[in-house]
């Protein structure tokens, strides 16, 4: 297919764009995971906190990405920063929600047994609840990653040099429009699917012996 020749011919530009795309995704997911885990644990502990956190994080994903990136660019400038912050905001919901659900799904009998053996609240969390919630948390991380890989393309509209660039560059070309769009879409989809499969495999590997909880 001509698109693959196009990709090869334009590797000099596409290569760095793929790198930037991966970089933006990795940083934003790491950021969201760090915050989301904390929020999720809090949300599992307190029902009103959970209600507020879920309301806020689900409101965040309602915001259109172009609007959010644009808005953020007012304060953090154009380029990668507004995209990283914005994507982290989108990724919060699946990670927070699943962390909360994963902890709440832990069998109360196991929690009671752990308490009975004299574990402190922190020990209970780090040695029992979080390890048992890992498959569910990973499912959230997986949803967040697939979401963020796709939305990151919109980052090109606020100046990030990622895989949104070849897509935007296709507009207005007199020839090769299709190849140019696909040169953006195909790597994005490939990254998304690969990330999904990798995290799915990890999820399965870490689910052994744990209660299977449907990821929602």
């Amino acid at each position: 297919m001509s698109v693959f020749r196009y990709i090869a011919d334009n590797w000099d530009t596409l290569g760095p764009q793929i790198e930037t795309h991966l970089f933006i995704v990795a940083i934003s997911i790491a950021l969201a995971a760090a915050i989301g885990l904390g929020l999720g644990v809090g949300a599992a502990r307190s029902s009103w906190f959970g209600t507020v956190v879920l309301a806020v994080t689900s409101t965040l994903v309602t915001l259109p990405s172009f609007a959010l990136f644009g808005l953020l660019s007012i304060w953090v400038g154009l380029g990668n920063p507004p995209v990283i912050v914005g994507l982290a905001m989108y990724a919060l919901l699946p990670i927070t929600r699943n962390t909360r659900a994963g902890i709440m799904a832990v069998d109360p009998a196991i929690v009671e047994a752990a308490r009975g053996m004299g574990m402190s609240g922190r020990q209970l969390l780090t040695r029992v609840e979080l390890p048992l919630a890992v498959p569910v948390i990973l499912a959230g991380l997986r949803q967040a990653t697939v979401l963020v890989v796709a939305i990151a393309t919109v980052g090109a509209t606020v100046g990030a040099n990622d895989l949104g660039q070849p897509i935007l560059a296709a507009i207005g070309r007199s020839t090769g429009t299709l190849d140019a769009v696909l040169a953006g879409i195909i790597p994005v989809a490939a990254i998304g699917i690969l990330a999904d499969l990798t995290l799915a495999a990890l999820q399965r590997a870490l689910s052994r012996g744990r209660v299977a909880v449907a990821a929602t």
């Binding site: 697939v146 979401l147 890989v149 796709a150 939305i151 393309t153 919109v154 509209t157 949104g164 897509i167 935007l168 296709a170 507009i171 429009t177 299709l178 769009v181 696909l182 953006g184 879409i185 994005v188 989809a189 998304g192 699917i193 999904d196």
Partner: peptide, 19 residues
């Protein structure tokens, strides 16, 4: 539906433009 999640919305729009 799963594949659709991996394809960016802006990509779909520009594909339609190409067409």
């Amino acid at each position: 539906a799963n594949l659709g999640q991996a394809v960016p919305g802006i990509g779909i729009l520009v594909l339609l433009y190409a067409w």
